[in-house]
């Protein structure tokens, strides 16, 4: 999986490939410093995110909780249908801002 981070007041994270147990652990290491920096907005570009397992959902939940705690915004954009299906199945559709 490739992860690309463009930092700013709005930080855009682009994920390409699969967010599984192994890659989620790597992604969390890269994303944690951003959450600690109290960034105002994080956009997750999911245009090329093909697969997500519960480890990936866990990471998204961590990001969402962290942003909510300091009144920041976390949005997912360009989410593929297969990923939306998993979000619907797990109730994550009502927890995340999915576009």
């Amino acid at each position: 999986m490739e992860i690309n981070i463009q930092k700013g007041e709005t930080t855009t994270i682009t994920l390409k490939g699969q967010l599984d147990t192994l890659t989620s652990a790597d992604a969390e290491k890269e994303i944690s410093p951003i959450l600690e920096s109290n960034v105002k907005e994080i956009i997750l570009d999911c245009a090329e995110l093909d697969y997500i397992s519960s480890a990936g959902l866990r990471l998204l939940l961590i990001i969402q909780k962290s942003m909510a705690a300091h009144k920041g915004i976390f949005r997912l954009i360009h989410t593929k249908q297969e990923i939306r299906d998993i979000f619907n199945l797990t109730g994550f559709s009502s927890i995340l801002n999915i576009e």
Binding site: S54, L57, R58, L61, I62, K65, A68, T90, G91, I95
Partner: peptide, 11 residues
């Protein structure tokens, strides 16, 4: 469960 109450894990 709402965001605040969702545990991390268990899925």
């Amino acid at each position: 469960l709402s965001l605040e109450d969702r545990p991390i894990g268990g899925l």
